[in-house]
């Protein structure tokens, strides 16, 4: 028969091991920080083109289009963002498409994630496969097959906003499902049971407990869907018809020459989303994590 000794009791209570003693010496310091140093170098590398775009947004090119070299400084580009023909129109269209597609994909994908995490039914494995396949298919195949279908059913004359939304929802949906699923899978189902125990019916439980707790995952999924959609070129190029989204506009400039205002837009996109993310992070920090 086993008699727990005080030492064993103490061992079971104190599961956290003490911190290792601090090491000394320059070699130690370097080896401890080497990874961090390399990591920061990689980060710096990813910012090189951003710096370049930022610099070129203040460039006054001598010719009609921006070149690789910085010639002279000007604020002019920032004051005349919409001057290049079609630039701001393409931005507006991109926003319209991405927002519509993001809403649709987030709603549909969240429902799917709930079904897959919270319910059992036949065909779960098949469903998972169907959701996985679009992510495993190169975009060029997604775009081309969708275009082939639009042509075959004779709606190729209608290519534009509707077909773009259809395409964007199609290729962002799986990413939404995966993101929301990860959040739901980590959620304690006993919280919902506790709500039911405390007189909340199914709908109240969903509205007051499940949805608020799943929200960070849903928001992350929506942000992912938006950025995938807004930045998409390949699928869009196949399904856009005569419509010009911002990425298509940039691509088109390759032939016409790059207006320096493009770099202003690029800088703005970076700055606005950066501020947005920082603000979200600060807001999140104000509240305790859960």
């Amino acid at each position: 028969m086993c008699t727990p000794t005080p030492a064993r009791i103490a061992a079971t209570i104190d599961t956290k091991s003490p911190k290792p003693p601090s090491r000394k010496g320059f070699g130690r310091w370097v080896s401890d920080h080497l990874v961090l140093f390399v990591g920061i170098l990689v980060l710096v590398y990813t910012f090189v083109p951003i710096g370049y775009i930022f610099a070129l947004s203040f460039n006054q090119p001598s010719g009609r289009s921006a070149t690789a070299e910085f010639e002279s400084f000007t604020w002019n580009n920032w004051e005349t963002i919409c001057e290049p023909d079609g630039l701001c129109g393409s931005l507006k269209l991109s926003f319209q498409i991405s927002i519509t597609a993001t809403i649709l994909a987030t709603v549909l994908g969240t429902l799917m994630a709930f079904a897959l995490v919270r319910h059992t039914f036949r065909g779960r494995a098949t469903s998972n496969l169907v959701i996985f396949l679009p992510m495993a298919t190169p975009e060029v195949v997604l775009g081309s097959s969708l275009l082939a279908m639009f042509v075959a059913v004779g709606v190729d004359g209608l290519l534009g906003f509707i077909t773009l939304v259809i395409a964007h929802v199609m290729f962002t949906l799986s990413f939404v499902v995966v993101t929301v699923k990860a959040r739901l899978a980590g959620m304690d189902s006993r919280l919902e049971q506790a709500a039911m125990d405390l007189y909340a019916n199914e709908w109240q439980t969903f509205r007051l407990i499940t949805l608020p707790l799943a929200m960070p995952g849903i928001v992350a999924a929506a942000m992912l869907a938006f950025s995938l959609s807004f930045d998409d070129f390949i699928v869009t190029n196949f399904t856009s018809g005569q419509s010009v989204t911002f990425p298509l506009f940039v691509y088109g400039s390759k032939l016409k020459g790059f207006a320096p205002q493009l770099f202003v837009v690029g800088t703005l996109m970076f700055l606005i989303s950066f501020v947005f993310v920082i603000a979200a992070e600060l807001w999140r920090r104000r509240r305790p994590t859960y």
Partner: peptide, 13 residues
């Protein structure tokens, strides 16, 4: 009937 759950299941939000 009400329950005090194992590790409480307090609503974190």
């Amino acid at each position: 009937v009400n329950t005090v759950f194992q590790s409480y299941a307090l609503f974190p939000h």
